[in-house]
Design a binder for these strands. Structure first.
Lengths: 223, 223
DNA sequence: ATTACTATAGTGCGAGTAA
DNA sequence: TTTACTCGCACTATAGTAA
């Protein structure tokens, strides 16, 4: 959704449009958004064509209701601002199981990391990661999760190699009709945008949940 | 602030930019906003020129920090979403005292209204209103307050005239170094955008606070 | 009063590219 | 790899206006 459309939708919402239909005019919208009446009119048409709102012309304006996809868009926005201002203590992210490269398992099984996991999580991770690929729409969430700064795992040197710092976030995992209570997201401290999250857990999740690549999962992250 | 700039600023904020400087690249921003790298670069320049962010070019990208005016802009946005989704129980609005037309006093002093005020507020309003003019930036708040639906005051017929329904919102009033604990905003149920709110109170506020037109006040509204 | 069409003006986008 | 310039074109906004 284009930012300019969103701001028009937000105006309607501020009039109470998420709760009931509201009477607005293109002139009023134009004033509010500081654009011309004609542009405001077009925005309303665009919002309607994109299925975000219902419209009906009426005496001296129009009756507008925000449809569910419009409310979803606004909620997404709201959630992002909550993430920014730390108003959330849990975030749900959805994605699908992806085959790992085995790398994750190699790293986390290093004693330098394992010691810290045991101490912080009070369980011993299975020596492999469970990788979940998120779709693009979830990226802000994962970015914000990283920004939230989880529990710090210290880096260390071993066999002449250096293993970097990482964040972990406790989480639960739902999928295939099961719930895994003990799990955590592990993310290198210095990484950029990636839409795959790696989970550790005391269980060999793939086997326990009888999961195959492409299965859908929901991760509830504690911030 | 233009909606497209705001969405760029929000991206920076989601990276943690409200808390500390973040390393981002125009390419990453471009992907996220689904615009070209060139446009993303331009947005960052615009944000800097508009004093919303600090920038410093760095190895493989740039170090960006959100300045206080940027944070203010984001908070305003956040507040509006909180208003939309009813996540606020109090709203602060600021404005200046304006001479009333005497109309408000005429209406509220009608027995049909007064009876209801006494019952709901447990105090008897002074027979006049205290009118506060808000600047444009506060309009979303007053719109949202109305959308929140306050305590309903019923309409009635008297002397062949009909007096309409109204909402009241309990509030407090701060200004001239004083605090008025007992006050309420009264707004006709069917009105459109007006940037003046009318307050009632058991006190003759203008006298009690020794207030003159143009003085600044803060109204804390209970939703 | 409205909404919203058409025609034109102008802004902003992205391709190409330099540093 | 970056950032960010110029330039041409396309999209978008507004003026004028009808309904």
């Amino acid at each position: 959704m284009k930012p300019s459309l969103l701001s028009a939708l937000k105006f309607i919402a501020l009039q109470g449009g998420t709760r009931h239909s509201v009477h607005i005019s293109s002139t009023a919208l134009a004033e509010m958004l500081d654009i011309s009446q004609q542009s405001a009119s077009r925005k309303l048409i665009e919002l309607e064509n994109s299925n975000y709102i219902d419209r009906k012309l009426a005496q001296g304006g129009q009756i507008v209701g925000i449809k569910s996809s419009g409310i979803t868009a606004l909620k997404k926005e709201f959630t992002e601002y909550q993430l920014i201002f730390g108003n959330l203590d849990k975030v749900k992210i959805n994605g699908i199981l992806e085959k790992g490269l085995g790398e994750g398992g190699y790293y986390i099984s290093k004693e330098g990391y394992m010691k810290q996991f045991k101490k912080i999580l009070s369980w011993t991770p299975y020596k492999g990661t469970f990788n979940i690929r998120l779709d693009e729409s979830q990226v802000p969430k994962i970015e914000a999760i990283k920004a939230a700064e989880g529990i710090l795992i210290e880096g260390f040197e071993q066999e002449g190699r250096s293993f970097g710092k990482a964040w972990i976030f406790k989480c639960t995992l739902k999928g295939n009709g099961n719930l895994i209570e003990k799990a955590a997201i592990i993310a290198p401290k210095r990484t950029h945008y990636k839409n795959v999250v790696e989970l550790i857990s005391p269980h060999f999740i793939r086997e326990k949940l009888n999961a195959t690549d492409g299965d859908s999962f929901e991760v509830d992250v504690e911030l």
